[in-house]
Design a protein around this nucleic acid. Structure first.
Lengths: 221, 221
DNA sequence: AAAATAGTGTTGTTTTTACAACAAAATGAG
DNA sequence: CTCATTTTGTTGTAAAAACAACACTATTTT
């Protein structure tokens, strides 16, 4: 099967063999689609019934308001999903946009089938549900972490909270972030130029160091 | 059973009869504990292995930083859970505090047992897993909604985003919020006095009206 | 009912951030 | 390599928020 080499290394299909993968793909009514850079994979307000799984490339989950302000909620890459919220069946429409950061290959799965497979005879249902749950928990954790960052009041505190988290996740005070400066400002919901000033202040104070997307948190406070 | 009347109306035990409830309680090694107002139910940094289910009262999920700034992440009440993140087994310790807002009765369930019951013979495992998943999805949604609020830059925008959400959830422009003004400021991560000023400005502009915890969103923009 | 506590609104000052506009540097496409 | 585009840093100004201090009101507690 064309996509098995990709699927087998995703969390959701982990531990499933090719035959099982194929059976599940049929069961979930999967379809594949490619997206160009900056193309919208999901548009806010869409009432789709599918969950997306990113198989190639990466995408930004965006929140855009009426005034055109863009806020990056989170970045999703290979093996990550978007749209799990739908599994609840209650959601009328998406509350955010999903926009390709680069050329993307996305697999869509029917949310209802994914959730209700328990009632089917599908052999690996327990596994998938467990994997789904695990992904959902990861998602939850990421959102909570972000809330802890955004609940800081100043740009400085937000930056430091974010860098601290990155360093912890990396288990290293040297780390690379997935954002350029403009994106980082959108991610932290702060003004880009004010952030730029603050970043360079932190650098001159010897608290952090950075070059491009490489950062070094020298003092955690 | 003493607690069945409470448990039967929680989401997690919905559709389980008294006998099944009892079996599951045994399986999950449940224990009960009461907490006074302002008492910490869970302390940040605790490496507990239990999930909490609120059976009476309500509690705040708090994020407190080194400087003593308090931010309310979310409010949990009857039937709601805290600590699902643990189900992933990867979490070393809690990242937030759970503090009783009033006198509380809390049921603790062993996270590992909850998650791995599939492998047991427990009759209702499918149901519980589905309920758990559903709660996790709710949780996810709440966190995303809050992120959408906190990603607004000004206090005014945060207030309006929050009120808009409340009105939508209530399906009514008149609604009651679970916070007093001080708590609302902590929830939105803004300065209380600045918020107070902004609130009264919005009122004088005829955009909102409020009295105590009762609000009316007159113009949604 | 009185006293203590918690909640709310107001003000002025200081600090921080947003915003806008620009210049320089880096990147990418042809 | 060159040109166009994107990214980054800088500055000054205006706006907003934080902070602190206080007065007043409402709510509990005793």
């Amino acid at each position: 099967m064309e996509y098995f080499s990709l699927l087998k290394s995703t969390k959701i299909f982990s531990d499933a063999n090719e035959f099982e993968c194929q059976a599940m793909m049929f069961c979930f009514k999967t379809r594949f689609k490619s997206f160009d850079k900056n193309e919208k994979i999901i548009t806010e307000g869409d009432s789709v019934s599918d969950v997306c799984l990113i198989l190639k490339g990466s995408a930004n989950i965006l929140n855009e308001d009426d005034l055109g302000n863009i806020s990056i909620i989170s970045r999703v890459g290979f093996g990550e999903v978007f749209g799990l919220e739908e599994l609840n069946n209650k959601m009328e429409c998406f509350k955010n946009n999903l926009v390709a950061k680069e050329k993307c290959l996305v697999m869509f799965m029917n949310a209802h089938r994914l959730m209700n497979m328990c009632e089917n005879k599908c052999k690996r249902h327990e596994l998938i549900i467990k994997n789904l749950m695990s992904m959902l928990l990861d998602n939850n954790k990421i959102l909570l972490e972000k809330l802890n960052i955004l609940s800081k009041k100043s740009t400085r505190e937000k930056l430091l909270a974010y860098f601290k988290l990155c360093a912890e996740k990396n288990d290293n005070t040297y780390f690379e972030i997935p954002f350029n400066k403009t994106e980082l400002a959108n991610y932290l919901s702060v003004d880009r130029s004010a952030m730029s000033t603050e970043l360079n202040k932190l650098k001159s104070e010897g608290i952090i160091d950075f070059d491009k997307k490489q950062y070094h948190l020298k003092k955690s406070q």
